Structures are given as structure tokens and as C-alpha cells.
Amino acid sequence: MTVIALLSVAPVTEDSMAADVADAVAALEDFDVSYETNPMGTVIEAEDVDTLLAAVAAAHKAVDADRVSTFLKVDDKRTDDRPATEKVDAVERELGRPARSDRE
């Protein structure tokens, strides 16, 4: 099975969160997960939910702040082993083009 999640971990602060977010993303390296960070969070893919949740807990704990906000959305499709990239590929097939704009 493949478990996919959208994770956002951030300190509650008015200052830049980049260093703290980097700490959270770096914590994922200790786990057997693949991930891709985007402006709104990090998409994580794991073979099972236990691995995914352990990685998420580590990312949350990696942020050294007085207050940390973590958002997690999990897609645990238990009868399918297709990777997360297949979801984007399917949308792009329907669009007939890449699922992004040309604007920078």
C-alpha cells in the first residue's frame, strides 16, 4: 500500500519560518519516506501509515518554538500501490498539459 499526506509544520511567529520549516523537512530524512516541499506544505509518501506518522511526529518535534502549528491530511488508499505522482499524471492526462501555469 501507499500512504500519501500533505504536511505543514510551522512555528507560530511573525518572523520568517524558513529555518524552522527546514528543520522539519530535514527530520524526514531519518525515515523511509519520499517527500516534496512546495509553498503550502510538504507532500510525503510512505509504504505504511505507521512510518508516515512517525515521520510526521519527528517533523513536528524538530521545530524548536514556544508554539508549533501542524496540519496533516492523509490519503491511505489501502487497495492501491500507485505512487503519489500518478495522481498528478492522471490530472495532466485529463488537462492535456502540465498541471501548472507558465507564470513564474
Rank of each mutant, 00 (worst) to 15 (best):
M1R: 07
I4Y: 04
V9Q: 03
P11I: 11
P11W: 09
P11T: 05
V12Y: 02
E14K: 07
E14Q: 06
D15G: 04
D15F: 08
S16E: 06
S16W: 01
M17W: 09
M17R: 11
M17E: 02
A19I: 04
A19E: 15
A22R: 13
A22S: 15
D23K: 15
A26V: 02
A27V: 08
F31Q: 04
S34Y: 09
Y35N: 08
E36M: 08
N38S: 05
M40R: 11
I44R: 00
I44F: 11
E45I: 03
A46P: 12
E47V: 00
V49N: 09
D50K: 15
L52F: 03
L52W: 06
L53R: 00
L53Y: 02
A54V: 01
A58F: 05
A58R: 12
A59L: 07
K61W: 01
V63R: 01
D64C: 02
D64I: 07
D66S: 14
R67H: 11
S69R: 11
T70D: 05
F71D: 13
F71L: 14
L72N: 09
V74C: 10
V74S: 11
D76K: 11
R78G: 12
D81N: 12
P83E: 13
K87P: 00
D89A: 15
D89F: 06
A90S: 08
V91H: 08
V91Y: 09
E92Q: 15
R93E: 09
R93T: 11
G96E: 03
A99C: 11
A99R: 12
R103C: 00
R103K: 12
R103E: 14
